[in-house]
Design a protein around this nucleic acid. Sequence first.
DNA 1: CGGACGGTTCGGCGCGCACCGAACCATACC
DNA 2: GGTATGGTTCGGTGCGCGCCGAACCGTCCG
Lengths: 224, 224
Amino acid sequence: MSPLAETASLLADRTRAAICQALLDGRAWTAGELARHTGIAPSTASEQLSRLIDGGLLAEERQGRHRYVRLAGPQAAALIEAVASFAPDTARPRGLRASARAGAEARARTCYDHLAGRLGVALADAMVGRGLVAADAGLAVTPAGRDWLAEELGYRRPAGARRPLVRACLDWTERRPHFAGALGAALCAAALERRWVRRLGSGRALAVTPEGAGAFRELLGVES
Amino acid sequence: MSPLAETASLLADRTRAAICQALLDGRAWTAGELARHTGIAPSTASEQLSRLIDGGLLAEERQGRHRYVRLAGPQAAALIEAVASFAPDTARPRGLRASARAGAEARARTCYDHLAGRLGVALADAMVGRGLVAADAGLAVTPAGRDWLAEELGYRRPAGARRPLVRACLDWTERRPHFAGALGAALCAAALERRWVRRLGSGRALAVTPEGAGAFRELLGVES
DNA sequence: CGGACGGTTCGGCGCGCACCGAACCATACC
DNA sequence: GGTATGGTTCGGTGCGCGCCGAACCGTCCG
């Protein structure tokens, strides 16, 4: 089969798609968690995970009697985002619990290893407004942005790094881009590390802490 | 079904994948041509085309008793490229005719609406080397590049254009990026318009004409 | 040791869908 | 008008594959 169809087949099943979207939070899940999350038998989950790993989308890590699984890397996350964001529009969530979660995710969430939702988009806008990132044609980190990354986030780009420093990632709730790439990952890591945000439950949703609100205002002038 | 799985399903069939990859040459094909090209019955082709159109990947244009079909737009092309280029490696072509065509396509070809192959990558490298495009972090057209586009290619960016001016597109023969986006499209259009390249047969392969060789050398210092 | 639990393997079932051929419709040309 | 040709619609067929339950294998814990 053609490589195109082969890769697409991995995502062409509702169960495997749900697994991949769950893993978009960037964390490692156990096989059982994913089985419960998608509502299928553990045996089925095991088979589907093997397929996704064979296809290069997922990576596994065995620990004791657990099989942890996560996205194989940024390219896998980018692929899933690219395919998922192609559909013109998506149905609104139904039910009280679902819409509460949707509301929280719309405010702030992780998107693989960077920040998304209104928070992610606001941070991206602020970085452009402050001249840390130039967005006139393509995206580029300015010299001022490079300094800011080093001073405020302690991030210095390793020599010979292959991952783009900054990449646009279409936000599926805001329908506007937020920042992925090494910059997005560094910002998200710092935010979690310094307790500017904390995870809500087991999903992708985030809450901005009081300290975080102060930090975002001070660093970037963002009200969250 | 989830939007992710829905979109992926469109590309998850060998026949539909072959159709999409044929259309990556950016031109409109008739339903019959695609049926012959993929080796299926016209009736089957008709059904598959309808599916792809419903899914938003293809656009149709009816003329007389012909149904012309082409990619719906740059986003559709980008999606197909993104999925196709995820597979780590692909099998080498078999047979004399196939490898002759592969050789021609490796030299120069269209990739949706821009240039690819060794020619496309060489042009991209030259534009970076001459300071027309900055590639240090993300991709951006420099002021000099903007002037060059206006003077040499007669391209001026329309106000409020949504398509990125320049975008990296991974070349599947060279395994290195060439330029897509409005810049790539303008360059390809100019090259075809001014007979710097001409199409070889009915596929995506291109040949550089003698005038084209001169133009590329003069404009960008590229030997083709 | 035995029991509980997470994960995997294996048969088997049933739906979905890619495919074809035949009939049919529309356009183009004589 | 008649005929060729491009395209579509509609039954019908067969394979692929997503799913489950049962049996089995490891690991962890009392």
